[in-house]
């Protein structure tokens, strides 16, 4: 059961990372990164590290997303096509 949940969370994290890379909309990229962190929270909790899970929830999901969102607000929402 634990292994199954862990595999599900791994799939969740990979999907979040894929969203973060593939989206042109940077707002959705930030959401994707936040999903990766949320999966990491689940992993830490699953493998009996609730302290680290709480830290990841506070910093990875909330605080770092806020910092990235402020960057998105300053530099524009859509990825520059010339950079690709």
């Amino acid at each position: 059961m634990t292994a199954l949940l862990a595999l599900l969370l791994f799939a969740w994290m990979i999907a979040g990372a894929w969203i973060a890379i593939s989206q042109d909309d940077l707002l959705q990229s930030v959401v994707g990164l936040s999903l990766v962190s949320l999966g990491a929270v689940g992993q830490f909790f699953l493998f009996q590290a609730p302290d680290v899970a709480l830290t990841e929830a506070a910093i990875g999901v909330a605080a770092s997303s806020f910092v990235l969102l402020m960057g998105v607000r300053q530099f524009g929402r859509y990825e520059d096509k010339e950079l690709k």
């Binding site: 609730p50 302290d51 899970a53 709480l54 830290t55 929830a57 506070a58 910093i59 909330a62 605080a63």
Partner: peptide, 11 residues
Amino acid sequence: SPGGGFQGGVI
């Protein structure tokens, strides 16, 4: 319980 100064401070 799990948590502490760092986590609560960030919250």
